[in-house]
């Protein structure tokens, strides 16, 4: 088994940090090595703890998450950042992604999604919350993110059809009906598309497709 991922968490609301502790305790995959209540404290903790992943709130006193992320990514490039937001605050999320965050989650996320996001970001992938709207996908795709994979691998025509259907919010079963493929074949296509686009969920595929002009909104 791999070493647990070392996390630093930051939020100006102490009760929420407690909640994150509660959510992640007894999880072998991760280990919280530090916590901070503002951006300045976060930078100190990152410098002293050298975590693999930072999970941080965006709006914090003294120094906000966007500035902190920009500094962390330039001084400690091995440390990945996940932004946490209370609501779907699209422009803040885009600011964080442009500052170098590898992904974002809503504060109402589940344990499963939180762990998945931490793993993906630590492995160098982006992770975008399952609740991402098409509107936010478009904003992210248009953002000047240093992390979105820009190169376009070659897709077969069938794959492109399936990507478009995914972008139109169809689930695998509907896609199978629409393309006269079996459900299992569609699932295989889906996996292959995720691999090619470096995505970890449907949102990743949608953002990729918008960014590379496969799907227009």
């Amino acid at each position: 088994m791999r070493q647990p991922l070392r996390l630093v968490i930051a939020d100006d609301y102490p009760l929420f940090l407690e909640g994150l502790h509660l959510l992640l305790e007894q999880q072998d995959e991760v280990h919280i090595v530090g916590e901070a209540h503002n951006g300045t404290e976060l930078l100190e903790k990152v410098a002293s703890c050298k975590p693999d992943v930072v999970i941080t709130d965006i709006q914090m006193p003294q120094m906000d998450g966007v500035t902190a992320t920009r500094i962390i990514r330039s001084r400690f490039p091995d440390t990945k950042v996940i932004a946490l937001t209370m609501f779907n605050e699209e422009h803040l999320i885009v600011d964080m992604i442009e500052a170098g965050a590898g992904g974002y989650l809503l504060k109402s996320t589940s344990k499963g999604e939180l762990l998945k996001a931490v793993q993906s970001v630590a492995d160098g992938y982006n992770y975008f919350c399952n609740h991402t709207s098409i509107r936010l996908s478009k904003l992210i795709a248009q953002s000047r993110s240093p992390l979105l994979h820009p190169s376009e691998p070659l897709f077969t025509e069938k794959e492109i059809d399936i990507i478009r259907l995914i972008c139109e919010q169809h689930v695998s079963k509907q896609i199978a009906d629409l393309t006269s493929l079996t459900h299992r074949t569609v699932e295989k296509y889906r996996d292959r598309i995720m691999n090619k686009t470096g995505s970890k969920n449907v949102v990743g595929i949608v953002i990729y497709a918008i960014k590379n002009g496969i799907y227009r909104v």
Binding site: D11, Y13, L15, F16, E18, G19, L20, L22, L23, M86, F87, K107, S108, S110, K111
Partner: peptide
């Protein structure tokens, strides 16, 4: 709503799922 009720609800949700 954003700074107080929001996080409190998130924590409550975590506690319930726990």
């Amino acid at each position: 709503l954003h700074d107080e009720l929001g996080p409190l609800l998130s924590v409550t949700r975590i506690q319930i799922s726990k």
